[in-house]
Simulated scan of single mutants.
Amino acid sequence: MSKDFYTAIKDRRTIYGISNEEIVSQERIEEVVKYAVKHTPYAFNSQSGRVVVLFGEQHQALWDITKETLRKIVPAENFAATEERVDSFASGYGTVLFFEDQEVVEGLQKQMELYKDNFPIWSDQSSGMLQYNVWTSLDIEGLGASLQHYNPLIDDEVKEKWDIPSSWLLRAQMPFGKPVAPAGEKEFQPLDERVKIYK
């Protein structure tokens, strides 16, 4: 599948309705994720982005962890809606976990003290770009995805389950799969209120 850049930007949407039907091979997903990780820009070329891709039982295990973690803190009378939402993510084909290696960030802070307060901000900005690049790439492959943030609630169990280095900070989770329901309607604020141009 191929799209021009502008179409890819427009078509990338939050898709909650996903299934685990294989419409793209795991090998192809690995390729597009690695490509995004390699080519996403980072301040001072720090390359602090880290990614874990989960398929099958590993993907299911993440959302089991998430559900049981939430069960402990969400009131029982409200848990049905939470469980339904988490189960919708678990019904997908896989999940991408996005991390930032704090050892890299802290190393740069020590090397360049003048910018030390900026490195965590720049790290988050680049992580956002990486998330967007992966998300758009998955859309180009015909997959639907959404971006979730159950960190830091699930951080410790995720690190233990998948032997994640202690310096990797979990930033987001992206469940993906075959779209089975379209994205909702999207409203746009007037661009002249959001963009200023001076000539």
Rank of each mutant, 00 (worst) to 15 (best):
A76Q: 14
L153E: 11
R71M: 08
G144W: 13
R28Q: 07
G92S: 06
V104H: 08
I18Q: 01
K178C: 14
E21K: 15
I29C: 15
W162T: 08
I73T: 14
A81N: 10
F79Q: 02
I154K: 09
A43R: 10
P179Q: 08
I15S: 12
L108G: 01
D139H: 08
R171N: 13
E22I: 13
T7M: 07
L138P: 02
V195K: 03
F176A: 06
D64W: 03
G128L: 11
G49F: 10
D163A: 15
D117I: 03
Q58R: 15
P152D: 06
Y42K: 00
F5L: 10
S19V: 12
V53M: 11
Q26P: 02
W135F: 04
G17D: 05
I197H: 01
Q47Y: 08
D117G: 15
R171I: 15
R12Q: 06
V96I: 11
I18C: 04
V33T: 01
I121R: 00
S123Q: 02
D4M: 05
D117F: 10
K159T: 01
L54E: 10
L191S: 04
K34D: 02
S146Q: 01
E83G: 03
E84T: 12
G49Y: 06
Y35I: 02
L130F: 03
V195S: 01
I197E: 08
D192Y: 11
K199F: 15
P41W: 05
W135Q: 03
V96S: 03
L153P: 04
N118P: 00
L191A: 08
Q111P: 00
T66C: 14
A90I: 05
R85N: 05
L62V: 04
G92D: 09
Q131N: 01
L54H: 11
R13S: 02
E185V: 02
L108E: 08
Q125A: 12
E106F: 07
G184Q: 05
H149M: 08
I121Q: 00
V96R: 03
S167E: 12
Y115A: 13
G107K: 10
Q26C: 03
V96F: 01
E106P: 00
G49L: 09
L191I: 08
I73W: 02
N45D: 09
V104A: 09
L147D: 06
Q60C: 10
R13M: 04
D163R: 12
A81Y: 11
I9L: 15
E84W: 07
M174A: 04
Q189F: 14
K161A: 12
Y150W: 14
G128M: 10
T7W: 10
V33I: 13
V32Y: 13
V86R: 01
S127N: 14
F98T: 06
E21P: 10
R71A: 09
F5M: 06
I9K: 09
E27R: 06
E77G: 05
Q109Y: 00
Q125F: 10
F119D: 08
S166K: 15
H149I: 05
Q26F: 07
R50F: 07
A172W: 04
K186Q: 13
N118Q: 08
Q47S: 08
E185P: 02
E84V: 07
D163F: 13
E84A: 13
S127L: 09
L153T: 11
R171Y: 02
V104W: 09
P182C: 06
